[in-house]
Write a protein that binds this DNA or RNA. Structure first.
Lengths: 222, 222
DNA sequence: GTCTATAAACAGATAGAC
DNA sequence: GTCTATCTGTTTATAGAC
């Protein structure tokens, strides 16, 4: 059946993508060791053997999931941050950061796929290995670096200084917590779900904090 | 129930404690499903069967670990926050929060046990169940509530309002990220470890942020 | 209460038919 | 390329000796 003529649209690629999708979802929820490859195959509507065929084994799928995570989050955060340049204008740098954070928070807090993406990343951080290296070099390092440059421009401080880097990490921490801590947040806020309304409240909190922290950083730089 | 005569010092209690300790460490690093009870027994220097004996099974140990986590973190955060009362004095409320945050951040960022405690909590949040309920009612709800009251006093805003609750969650997010994201932070900061020096830099970042955010919240409340 | 031995279920990898 | 059947090792839980 799997001949790659244009009518069939390479079912190989489709199976591959379905496996990564299923792997991300299950690894995120139940953990890597907690997920049997049989479940992944079932979720992707294929057979167990196809995981060894496409990725060489369970570990290969893990790495492929890490690649997918880095790619997806760069699409959300990256294209807004990585490409743009404030050109020394503090106000513009702050505006760019606000736009980027809004996009990031909206995606991370409200989009359903973000649950699995965030959970996958957090799990990899609890047990660092090749998959985390992937995510670090392809996502975290470039995005954090770009945010540091914007932060430096916005506050007039050294973008390479430890305090700038820590400030940006603190900012990132706020965002990821709104996803990871979701069940706790829902319960405490009395929310049923994080829809557009709730996401906007979170966006308002984070962007408000950004402005306050940048203002404080600017004052401290004098 | 073990017989508690003072001479033997109940080795039962010791085994129990050693199992919880080992469980917390291994569950945090490799996840619940990723950890065989044989490994836990070996780490606790006892036999596999003792887990079923003391906790009824692997799930029982999981719940006992959740209890231990809640208890331990209440000792760190709780005794400073839960007991004290600002009595309507904004300055005093801010000072209490600063003291509490310093203790919390120092513990979470620098203490080795905190790695496993934080990882355990995050994993439970990714896959909510009875253990998370434990942690929520015995730790998160009371501590978050106390911080909201202090925040309300410090900023002059309603401690029960959604924006206050979200602000406190954002603050908490910063703290936990400095533990969860540790491997990434070490790499990006060029640090070998988080010792007293590095912990102080993190404490300075977080308490600085606290002051800036409270000041902004106070201004907004006018 | 502790521990060894074992049972019954389940894991990931792979050979070979299609 | 896909899928079934199977191999080999490992898992949790438990029975029973001490």
């Amino acid at each position: 059946m799997p001949k790659t003529d244009k009518a069939t649209r390479t079912s190989s690629e489709q199976t591959r993508a379905a496996l990564i999708d299923a792997g991300l979802r299950l690894f995120g929820r139940k953990g890597f060791e907690g997920t049997p490859i049989r479940d992944i195959a079932a979720e992707a509507k294929t057979n167990v053997a196809s995981i060894a065929y496409h990725f060489g084994g369970k570990d290969g799928l893990r790495l492929a999931c890490a690649e997918a995570v880095a790619l997806r989050l760069r699409q959300v955060a990256g294209q807004t941050i990585l490409s743009s340049d404030a050109g020394g204008d503090g106000e513009k740098a702050l505006a760019i950061m606000e736009t980027a954070l809004t996009a990031l928070v909206t995606f991370i807090a409200a989009r359903p796929e973000a649950r699995d993406i965030a959970a996958f990343m957090m799990r990899e951080m609890s047990d660092p290995g090749p998959a985390l290296d992937q995510i670090y070099t392809n996502l975290i390092h470039p995005v954090h670096g770009a945010l540091c440059r914007l932060w430096g421009t916005a506050t007039g401080t050294d973008p390479e200084s430890p305090s700038t880097r820590l400030a940006v990490f603190a900012l990132a921490g706020q965002i990821v917590y709104f996803r990871i801590g979701r069940p706790v947040i829902l319960k405490r806020m009395g929310w049923q779900d994080i829809g557009p309304d709730e996401a906007n409240q979170i966006v308002a909190t984070v962007t408000g904090n950004l402005r306050a922290l940048v203002a404080a950083g600017k004052a401290g730089a004098k």
